[in-house]
Amino acid sequence: MKNRLFLLVAILSLGLFLAACGGADENNEGNNANTDENGNTASEGEQASDYKVSMVTDEGGVDDKSFNQSAWEGIKAWGDNNGLSKGEGFDYAQSNSSADYMPNISRFVRDDYDLIFGVGFKLKEDLQKSAEQFADTNFAIIDEVVDAPNAASITFKEHQGSFLVGVAAALKTKTNKVGFVGGIESPLIKKFESGFIAGVKSINPDIQVEVQYAESFTEPAKGKMIATNMYGNGVDVIYHASGGTGNGIFNEARDQKHNDPDRELWVIGVDRDQYEEGQIDENNVTLTSMVKRVDVAVQDVIERGMKGEFPAGELLEYGIEENAITIATTNEEAMTDEIITAVEEWEEKILDGNVEVPQTTEELEQYIDSL
């Protein structure tokens, strides 16, 4: 009898314990859920499915192997993580000319997208107008600044990454001549140029840096012609910040490497790891790339918006510290341990505040004078 009574008490105690555990789980589940305006709860997945994100490219296109592509990869990664698909939760619109900007933006507004990205400084004017006209929609522009209470401006510390690839170029050159090719001359691209030259001169002030602007981000033929002249003048490392125009620089480097496999010449890519663009025969002419993690910034802004914390009216700047600026080390043969160690040392100096990387021509001149 005593044994049966003991068994009954044990069973009742177990039941109470399990019920308590179940209640705790339910309470935790409720605490982790999101609550809508009516007091109803929704899981993160359900919340994400209600949040729609889109982007409008500039003329470079979504597969420009540059920041359009990186931005799209960030949006797509967010969508994939939340079980969404292109056209069902996230999408992009291709702009073939500047005349497409406003129609593309307006279409996404009509389709009730919560957040619309404009990729590139060329979209500034149309995104500014759209933000003022459509106050209930959130907008974000990449590589520019707009002034609106429902818009965020996403910028990067490109000068930091450009400084680091400048260090790599200076340690790699055999001719003491390196080159910089920009797309359209602007304050943005001047950040790339200034940072690069500062990095080069920090290693060896006597290295010559040849600079030329193509005045286009979409003309590979012009990039190829500039590279032909630079390599012909003895330059052996070219860093480009020229979007699709840079494809022509890679083409010329591959052609020359194919014709003379023993010649050492290099290209430094931009925005994303452009290692694949440098492959030719058994060689690869991509020394490194200044990787601008537009995808990291885009995902950060989306996540904040999805949580109801969209950085409206804010100017955001992503750099080394935010893991949004780095350089590629994919080409293990070219990026030797010596070069990587030196780059890491200079990176620490930047993070510690011991090196203030110049962003303008004036700051660059002052920096060089201080060396």
Rank of each mutant, 00 (worst) to 15 (best):
E219W: 03
P220D: 07
A221P: 02
A221W: 03
A221C: 08
K222M: 10
G223M: 06
G223V: 07
K224L: 08
K224N: 11
M225C: 03
M225P: 00
I226H: 00
T228N: 11
N229Q: 13
N229E: 11
Y231G: 01
Y231E: 02
Y231H: 03
Y231T: 03
G232T: 02
G232R: 01
G232D: 02
N233C: 00
N233H: 01
N233K: 06
G234V: 00
G234A: 05
V235Y: 03
V237K: 00
V237M: 00
Y239P: 07
H240G: 12
H240Q: 15
H240V: 14
A241H: 11
S242L: 14
G243Q: 08
G243D: 09
G244H: 02
T245F: 12
G246P: 11
G246Q: 09
G246R: 05
N247G: 15
G248L: 06
G248S: 08
I249P: 07
F250H: 10
F250A: 15
N251S: 15
N251Y: 04
E252I: 05
E252A: 08
A253C: 13
R254H: 06
D255M: 05
K257Y: 05
K257W: 06
H258A: 10
N259S: 07
N259D: 12
P261W: 09
P261M: 13
D262G: 10
R263E: 11
E264V: 13
L265A: 09
L265F: 09
W266F: 14
G269D: 05
G269F: 03
V270T: 12
D273T: 09
D273R: 05
Q274H: 04
Y275I: 10
E276Q: 15
E277G: 09
E277I: 11
E277M: 15
G278Y: 03
G278D: 11
I280F: 06
I280M: 07
I280C: 08
I280V: 15
